[in-house]
């Protein structure tokens, strides 16, 4: 078995999701190479050589790959990946954008969001907002997979001695261009990797009130998330949405504040170790999922939590 893992990075450094994806690759078993496609991505490539479990780091460093445009990167991955038995990427928005395009170029049916490896060709994945876990077997010659990072531990970012190999192949489709981005800057840990997540819903009632949760997050060293309703209402940006169609989180502690617990929200957080729900409606479905439920007005108890912590 030979496995190509597609690194998630921002050119200067490697994103943690890469480390979880390597663990998934290890549970398939075989030689693992890591592909870094970017522009001026030497920083990320150097970090990658230290990651444990990697044989070679393949680096495609070219302006065409700078913003991870699928039209340019997919043909690169399809070309390099054609000689591997497996191609894996984290199920981040970058992975989800690129991997199906790679699979179709290789005439392969990709498998999205695997949550467990049963064997080299058989995987589990959640469907129907996580209400069903399907065990699926691929008959394609190359298995093309995206990995649910919360379902796999991270390999160590240190201790490896991988070699770097430069790739010279350039794919520039010329039909898409990067115009700009607005990226959130936060001092807090990344939502999908945080040990504690505090999420607010429609019950937060305003953008300003999210400061209550930020304060709590800072006391607990956590990240702040949100329900779709809170994002749609404009309280917080889209990158904070937790759920079936947002981010998947599985922290040690998840605190849902003013969130009712729709199946689409539960899909994104129900694998958390300990779930706390704060809601003034004792019938709210979130309480069926919560280890500790507090029926109360959030505007009374969140400030109290902030004082007592």
């Amino acid at each position: 078995m030979s496995i190509l893992v597609i690194a998630e990075h921002d050119n200067s450094s490697l994103k943690p999701a890469t480390l979880n994806t390597i663990t998934a690759a290890q549970s398939i078993g075989g030689d693992i190479d890591l592909l870094i496609a970017g522009a001026d991505c030497g920083g990320a490539a150097n970090e990658a050589t230290k990651v444990s479990g990697i044989g070679r780091v393949l680096v495609a460093d070219n302006p065409a790959y700078g913003h991870r445009l699928a039209e340019n990167i997919a043909p690169l991955i399809a070309e390099v990946g054609a000689s591997y038995s497996h191609i894996l990427a984290p199920a981040t928005t970058t992975g989800k954008n690129i991997i199906p395009r790679v699979a179709a170029l290789l005439d392969v049916q990709a498998i999205s969001d695997i949550s467990s490896v049963e064997s080299a060709d058989t995987f589990k994945r959640p469907i129907y907002a996580g209400n069903i876990i399907a065990t699926v077997q691929s008959s394609d010659s190359i298995k093309v997979l995206t990995v649910r990072t919360t379902a796999f531990d991270a390999v160590s970012a240190e201790g490896g001695t991988a070699s770097i190999e430069a790739l010279t192949s350039i794919h520039n489709s010329g039909n898409s261009s990067f115009i700009g981005e607005e990226l959130a800057v936060s001092e807090r840990p990344e939502l999908t990797a945080a040990r504690v997540v505090i999420s607010g819903g429609r019950g937060m009632a305003s953008s300003d009130n999210f400061q209550l949760l930020e304060k709590l997050a800072d006391k607990l060293g956590g990240a702040v998330g949100a329900s779709r309703a809170a994002v749609d209402a404009g309280f917080v940006p889209n990158d904070m949405q937790v759920g079936q169609t947002g981010k998947i989180v599985a922290p040690d502690l998840y605190i849902a504040v003013g969130i009712s617990g729709a199946i689409q929200h539960l899909a994104g957080m129900k694998d958390s170790k300990v779930i706390v729900a704060i809601n003034k409606d004792e019938e709210a479905p979130i309480f069926q999922m919560a280890d500790y439920g507090l029926v109360a007005d959030l505007f009374d108890v969140v400030p109290e939590l902030n004082t007592k912590l």
């Binding site: 049916q109 069903i132 876990i133 699926v136 691929s138 008959s139 394609d140 309480f287 280890d291 109360a296």
Partner: peptide
Amino acid sequence: RVTTLKVEPPPERAAGIKVAD
């Protein structure tokens, strides 16, 4: 290209409790 071998419900979470305050 992909066969579904089995489907199952996700693992159940143990019932939680309500806390007083």
